[in-house]
Design a protein around this nucleic acid. Structure first.
Lengths: 225, 225
DNA sequence: TTACTCCATAGTGTATACGAAATGCCAGCC
DNA sequence: GGCTGGCATTTCGTATACACTATGGAGTAA
């Protein structure tokens, strides 16, 4: 019975199932629940002091996203995030994210282009002053937001978000490799520029390369262990 | 309060939530529940003579797949399947399915190649004897099965299945266009051959073209109404 | 000693009860 | 006559109770 992270905000008014969902997802990606661990509804319900109902609802969502799988009449177990699984997700991300970038390049309007221009300037700034670690995630999320705004494809966005959540922890690891962070920033800059200038095919290809590089970095980190 | 299709098999032992899920999904794609209709848990529970619990569980799954969306404290409404949404799904399918085909071409082993050879022969047969309508779906699913077996990417498969279920009804419509059915069969044949021969890039491109053609056919049908 | 059977227990599957929030209607007031 | 406030109703959100199934261990017989 693993102890979970303490991320409980009592005063929030969002449905309990959402909080449970976040709680369990974090526990899984942080490795507190390990692959193959059983998740017993009553146990979690007891730990969080809620009933089984919201637990079940959260588990169903986690199942539909692939974090756990339920065996009929047996309960749910944490899916294994084997290296093969991670690589598979990188592969799918490569296809879906490059599509998103292509769409963004095709559909970006002036407001989005403007935001991209600003982001590019911020990246240059960060590269120059070497404050990469501080700025990287902020810029990453900022680019994502603009790209999704431009691509106008909420379903695609949801798919990518869901896949990204999986590999997020591993991507973090990969940025520990010397030089990877700077390279990733440069890739982001070039990508943002391509989207801004409406170069759809270029944006698509740069994204494929970017994700491919992330995958390689992950495999390198993996090999070192 | 729309009346649903009668597809209730009492004696099955699969969980009720799965049956409710299928029931509601069919009702949505068949247009019995229309875009924007509210789905009230108690009503459905009453119609099917089960409690609200499995209904809720089915609704959560439908939500995570995008068939419905739930407004907090307001209940769930059927998502709109506007033409733009359909086109968006075709676009995503183009990217994901072409990835699946590429992987299949790269990873197919002798057993899968053998099955593909057989399928190609069946297509030729069907084209010659002009029994396209009878054979098309059987062959479609057969190809899919082999390709997924070859691609070895269950997550990708799940994503494609989920997306396909949406547009299935519309693809059906599109095959009413004169000549589309034969063309689609020929595309399937060429695609199967490319996968069989390990021509990954060719398979990828043929898939993109195939899905693109399906999208165009859908838009044509749409324009006629 | 081993294998088979039976029972206790754990844990999911479903039903139902209760509470809270939002909407719509009706009445009363301005 | 129109607007506002409150009440009733609807419907979701959560808790809980009961049922059913699978599993593991103990006990007995070969």
């Amino acid at each position: 019975m693993p102890e979970g992270p303490v991320i409980w905000k009592d005063e929030e008014l969002s449905p309990i199932r959402d909080k449970v969902y976040e709680y369990l997802k974090q526990a899984i990606v942080q490795g507190i629940y390990k692959s193959g661990d059983r998740i017993v509804e009553r146990e979690v319900a007891g730990q969080l002091n809620v009933s089984r109902t919201p637990i079940r609802e959260a588990l169903f969502r986690l199942e539909s996203q692939g974090f756990v799988k339920t065996l009929p009449r047996r309960g749910v177990v944490v899916s294994k995030l084997s290296p093969e699984e991670i690589v598979e997700i990188f592969t799918i991300l490569s296809a879906t994210e490059s599509l998103a970038m292509k769409l963004a390049a095709q559909r970006a309007e002036e407001p989005q282009r403007d935001k991209l221009r600003q982001i590019i300037a911020e990246i240059e700034e960060a590269l120059e002053h070497n404050v990469l670690r501080e700025e990287h995630w902020r810029i990453h999320f900022k680019i994502n937001a603009v790209v999704f705004e431009a691509a106008r494809s909420p379903r695609l966005q949801a798919m990518i978000d869901s896949l990204s959540e999986y590999v997020q922890a591993f991507v973090h690891l990969a940025y520990e490799l010397p030089g990877r962070l700077r390279k990733a920033m440069e890739e982001h800059r070039d990508l943002a520029r391509a989207v801004m200038e409406g170069e759809a095919d270029l944006a698509e290809n740069l994204t494929k390369i970017h994700v491919e590089n992330a995958k390689k970095a992950y495999l390198e980190v993996l090999a070192k262990e």
